[in-house]
Computed example of a mutant assay.
Amino acid sequence: MPSFGDRNNSACEVSTGTTIIAVEFDGGIVIGSDSRVSAGEAVVNRVFNKLAPIMNKILVLCPAPLPDTQPARICVEMGAPPRVIAAANLVKGISYKYKEEMVAHLIVAGWDQKNGGQVYGTLGGMITRQPFAVGGSGSTFIYGYVDSAFKPGMSREQCEKFAVNALGLAMGRDGSSGGVIYLVTVTTDGTKAQIISGDDIPRFYDL
Results as ranks from 00 to 15, higher is better:
Tyr205Pro: 00
Ile21Pro: 04
Cys62Ile: 14
Gln70Pro: 00
Phe4Met: 15
Ser155Phe: 07
Cys159Phe: 07
Thr69Gln: 02
Ile142His: 05
Met171Val: 01
Phe4Asn: 14
Tyr145Gly: 01
Leu90Tyr: 11
Gly117Leu: 13
Arg203Ile: 11
Ser38Leu: 04
Arg129Lys: 12
Asn49Tyr: 02
Phe25Leu: 03
Val23Ala: 13
Asp68Phe: 04
Ile31Tyr: 06
Gly79Gln: 13
Ile29Cys: 11
Cys12Ala: 11
Met171His: 07
Ser33Lys: 07
Pro152Val: 13
Pro2Gln: 13
Gln113Ser: 14
Val134Lys: 09
Ala133Ile: 07
Gly179Pro: 05
Trp111Lys: 00
Gly40Tyr: 07
Ser148Tyr: 11
Asn56Cys: 13
Ile181Val: 15
Gly135Gln: 07
Arg73Asn: 09
Asp34Ala: 08
Lys50Ala: 06
Cys75Pro: 01
Met126Thr: 04
Val37Phe: 09
Arg7Tyr: 15
Asn45Arg: 11
Ile31Leu: 15
Arg46Gly: 03
Gly144His: 10
Ser3Gly: 10
Thr185Met: 05
Gly175His: 02
Pro82Cys: 05
Asp206Lys: 12
Met126Ile: 05
Ile58Thr: 05
Gln158Arg: 02
Asp189Gln: 14
Phe204Ser: 11
Pro81Trp: 02
Leu59Val: 14
Gly5Cys: 09
Leu90Asp: 03
Pro53Cys: 12
Ile54Pro: 00
Thr122Val: 15
Ala11Asp: 13
Lys92Tyr: 00
Asp68Tyr: 02
Ile107Trp: 05
Lys99Asn: 11
Val119Pro: 04
Thr122Asp: 06
Ile54Arg: 04
Glu24Leu: 00
Cys159Thr: 05
Pro53Val: 02
Ala133Asp: 06
Phe150His: 12
Thr16Phe: 03
Thr187Leu: 03
Gly168Thr: 09
Phe132Gln: 01
Pro131Arg: 10
Tyr96Phe: 13
Gly168Arg: 11
Asp147Gly: 00
Arg156Met: 13
Asn45Ala: 12
Val91Gly: 04
Lys97Ile: 08
